[in-house]
Design a protein around this nucleic acid. Sequence first.
DNA 1: ACCTGAACACCGTTCAAGT
DNA 2: ACCTGAACACCGTTCAAGT
Lengths: 218, 218
Amino acid sequence: MTKSPRRAGRPSTQVLTEERILKAAFALSAQRTARQFTMTALAESLGVRTSALYHHFANRDAVIRAMRGQVSRALVSPVLHEMPVEDALLTWAHSYRDAAIAAPEAMVMLATSPIDADEGSFADYEQIARLLVADSWPTDTIVDAIVALESFIIGSALDALAPADNMAPGALAAQFPTFAEAEAARARLSTDPARRTFEIGVRALIHGLTAWARESTT
Amino acid sequence: MTKSPRRAGRPSTQVLTEERILKAAFALSAQRTARQFTMTALAESLGVRTSALYHHFANRDAVIRAMRGQVSRALVSPVLHEMPVEDALLTWAHSYRDAAIAAPEAMVMLATSPIDADEGSFADYEQIARLLVADSWPTDTIVDAIVALESFIIGSALDALAPADNMAPGALAAQFPTFAEAEAARARLSTDPARRTFEIGVRALIHGLTAWARESTT
DNA sequence: ACCTGAACACCGTTCAAGT
DNA sequence: ACCTGAACACCGTTCAAGT
C-alpha cells in the first residue's frame, strides 16, 4: 500500500523500543474502540510494518498486559495518608478510573481475566488497607470495601467506553417518556455524563461504605 | 470445509429465526470469550453458513444489541411498585446481577460494544424512572442513579467471574501483611465473598444515592 | 424470502530474506 | 538483532445464484 520509507534489513538506528510502542498503544487506545485497537493500526501509528512489533512483544495480548502493568504501577499515590479517609478513597478511585479510561482494552482484560498474583495490584491494596485500619475499620470490612469500590470503578470505566449518547432513547422517546425526559435533563447538565455519574456514584458508595463500617464496629 | 448438509436455495422449512439465533448466541457466550464470539462460530453452532445470519441480523453488533435487549426484558419485575423505593431498587439490582452472572461474557460485550437503542433496555429503565419520579426524585438525578447502579452491578458480576480466591495474596502475604490479614478475615466470613461484597456494596450505594437525591431536592 | 458459495478487505501471526 | 515483505488462516460483510 503505502510504500515504506525503509527498505528491508536491520536499520542502522533502532526504530522501536518497548517504551515507544507502549506510548503509542496508549495514544491509540484513547482514539479507537477496543475492537479497532489492532496491531496493524498500532504499527501504522509508529510508521512501521505490523510484523516489526513482534520483535518486541510476543503478541497482541502481551502488549495489553504490558499496558495493564503500567496502569497499576501508576496508581500508588503517596499522599493518601495526609487526608481524611473519605478523601483518600476518592483520590484513589479517581486515579484508578483515569488509568482505566486511558487503557480501555487493558480494562476489559483486567475485568475478564483473573489477576496474576505477581501483579503490583497488591501494593495498591496494601496501602488502602493500612489507611482503613488506621481509621479503625473492622478487619473483616476492609476487603469488601475495596472490592465494592473496584467493581464500581471498573463498571463505570466500561460505561464510559460506550458512546456518550448510548442512554438516549432517540426515536423510542415517545414510548418511554419518563425515562426520555430524565435522560434529556441529565444530558443538559453535562457534556460528559459518564464522568458525572462516576462522581456521584463514587461519593455515594464511599459514603455508604463508611457508614456501614462504622455500624460494624459497634 | 465441512460439506454442508443443505444445498443452495431457500430451504422448504425455515432453518433460522431470531429467537433460535439468540438462544445459540447466549450458549456460545457462556463458552467463549468476547473475542472468540464470532459470527462464524455462531453460525457453526447453528449448523449454518455464516452469511445466513445476515438475513436475520444486520451485523454482529445487532446480535449483541438483541442479546442486551433480552437480558433487560428478563429484568422487568411487576411487583416493584408495591414496595419502598430502596427495596425496589434492591430487587431490581438482584435480578440484574443474576442475569449478568448467567451470561458474564455477554455482559462484557454488552458493556463494551458500541450499541444503541434497543426497546428492551429502555422498558426496564422506564419502569425504574417512573418509580423514582413517584418517589419525587429530581428529574436530573434519575439517569445518574440508574447508570451508577448498573455500573456497580456489571463490575460486581465481572468480579464474581474471577476465581473466589483471586484476592488472596498467597505467597506475597508476607510482603503485604495488612491486606493479607483483612483478606483472610473476609474469607472466613463467607464461602461466596463476591456475593457478600455485592450485598454490602449495593446497599451502601442505594443508601448513598437516595441521600444524594434527597439533598438535590432542596 | 432464505439459504449457500464465492468474493473482498482486513486481522493476527509466522517466517524467510535482507542488513 | 531488527526491519520488510510475502504468506497463511481467519473474520465480518456483501452479493449473486439457487429454490
